[in-house]
Design a protein around this nucleic acid. Structure first.
Lengths: 350, 350
DNA sequence: TTGTATGCGTTATCAG
DNA sequence: CTGATAACGCATACAA
């Protein structure tokens, strides 16, 4: 492959001139610019960005480390990150990992020299020191951390507020015995949603009952399997808060198959407002979160932090929004827990 | 930040020795290895991989360029790519783009020096020369190209076969007037599915009728909006093949809201087998595709091509699988159009 | 306006 | 087994 030297030789100029042309230096004559561009095109010269960043110390690339998600939430976060990064002409190095904070630091290390900073979803509170270490090497913005940190900025989703508002809504609809399907252990989102549920109950003077808290894993199969557990509870709950929409839809489908009416016999609520939540029957009352906005905001925060005098310790929380549909009875009114953030969606494919 | 020189100086050895330690050279004494590791840890030394790849000419990174998808298909492909790459200790640079082949080559160029090869989903047949150009710089594997190429390998999904099998199934169920909801113009998947539908009809001696071909955009809103168009067709179709599940579910939901029974009045079929396809009511007859496998296979193909004597022009097609559920009537039997490929799914999060 | 020379952080080659 | 030194491809002070 042609290097800058090949182009310089072939064009009869110095490498410095070629470099200047490629960096848009105003010092170069129009005619030499033309010449260099022509030769470069002929040799099919592609500048080596690794070599460039070695000397400039900038890679125009952000590292992204996410757990191994596999649903809309994941792709929306990525889209948000990618769009916001692209708007600044930055690229993305992506890595998934599996719940281990040692793996997290290994990924960060392996990105050294190839990224200017990192957007990461930390696995759990145990990774706090790891994050502190990483952020000594480059600016980090955390997505939805489950812990407090003064080492870097973070952008979170209002899991707690959303779950609390939703539970309160169920109570207002007249439901008394509200069960919850929890998410996987040690999952930050799952823990916060559980906390919101418990606090809403205790606010209303309802004792939280361990037998009403059932373990799920955030997949629709788990919602389906849990159906039997729900129906076994005595006295039977009159509402179930499944802590994500996939489980809610799996559960609702199984209940209907058992002849249980939703919402008349049991109300069902979910969380996330996935794109199909309004299209199941009955349509799902849930909490809308802005995954796209989460990713986009994290990137914008990173740029703010990296600028002169960047704070590097901003903690932002994106609002969650109660979306009342038909699966819980009550009136069908969209309620906004906080201001709604619009996001720049775009067209798609299969 | 500490460099290899800092570590060498502090440890009283040469940079070559430090380098040898980090590259696992067997030539280094146990004691010096210990010493170097100790000093490196104390200085918090992270090797700069850009500098390393400048001389080794290897980045252990694959570029991934995908259109701006926003659903399960996208995240499954990424997961497949990431897992297969990680198994070889490779990383991923990800970029989304918007339908423009000039944008495609710009991304490829900007990755020069930072990747060893590329996995790309080409926008359309017009990008064939662009792909040819790129593959002169590093090995490329194409995902689902809509065109023939001898410049690189490709892995595709059997859109045509799947659509044809599905349409044949609708005919076998006794449906005569089968409408189709097409995907966006110039979309490769959409075109192939349409072709399969048309060929299945003509195989059965049914004239394809332009008024039965309705334009959609692969989003559930479009399925919903199209409901009115479907009901306006005279005589009314007795089945609708929506070329992806999102549109099928949107349409089904709208039809039910209009009091049209599915499948008694109109049968509905989809494509993709998204995770919720079995959980809507009635459950959706569709065609299952293996997006995870598509990504994983592309990466494996890339490694095969890059090895000694790699062919670099292999064309693979992943089978599509007819999945008969309840939305089209007929018997509920899972039929396999070709052998079923298992894929290594793993646990997840919100 | 252009060329020369140096260095970014690492690995590879060759002596020792 | 270890060290000195020349690359890798590029950008940038400085000189011309």
């Amino acid at each position: 492959m042609a290097t800058i030297r090949d182009v310089a030789r072939e064009a009869g100029v110095s490498t410095a001139t070629v470099s200047r042309v490629y960096n848009g230096s105003s010092l170069v004559t129009e005619s030499t610019t033309q010449l260099v561009m022509e030769v470069a095109a002929r040799l099919d010269y592609w500048p080596n960005s690794a070599a460039r960043s070695l000397i400039t110390n900038r890679t125009y690339t952000l590292g992204v480390v996410l757990p191994d998600l596999f649903n809309e939430f994941f792709s929306e976060i990525i889209r948000g990150i990618d769009h916001a990064a692209r708007a600044r002409r930055y690229q993305i190095i992506l890595s998934c990992f599996h719940d281990d904070s040692r793996e997290l630091i290994a990924m960060a290390k392996s990105m050294r020299g190839r990224i200017d900073g990192l957007i990461a979803m930390a696995p759990d509170a145990g990774s706090a020191k790891v994050i502190a270490n990483i952020s000594r090497h480059f600016p980090v913005v955390l997505l939805n951390p489950g812990f407090q940190t003064k080492d870097c900025s973070a952008v979170s989703i209002a899991n707690y507020d959303g779950a609390r508002a939703l539970t309160r809504h169920l109570l207002e609809c007249g439901h008394q015995r509200i069960a919850i399907v929890k998410g996987p252990a040690r999952n930050v989102d799952a823990e916060e949603r559980l906390r919101g549920y418990r606090d809403a109950l205790s606010d209303a003077g309802v004792n939280s009952d361990p037998s009403m808290e059932i373990l799920g894993d955030f997949r629709q199969e788990s919602g389906e399997q849990i159906c039997a557990d729900i129906l076994r509870i005595r006295p039977r709950p009159d509402a179930v808060f499944a802590t994500n929409d996939y489980m809610a839809i799996g559960l609702q489908s199984a209940l209907l198959a058992h002849g249980v009416r939703v919402p008349e016999d049991i109300a069902i609520a979910g969380f996330d407002d996935i794109s199909l939540a309004g299209y199941v029957n009955p349509s799902l009352t849930t909490v809308g979160i802005d995954a796209y906005g989460l990713g986009a905001k994290a990137v914008r925060r990173w740029f703010s932090d990296s600028g002169a005098g960047g704070a590097r310790t901003q903690q932002e929380i994106l609002p969650a929004r109660l979306i009342v549909r038909h699966s819980c009875g009550g009136s069908r009114i969209d309620r906004i827990s906080e201001e709604h953030q619009s996001n720049e969606q775009s067209g798609g494919s299969s």
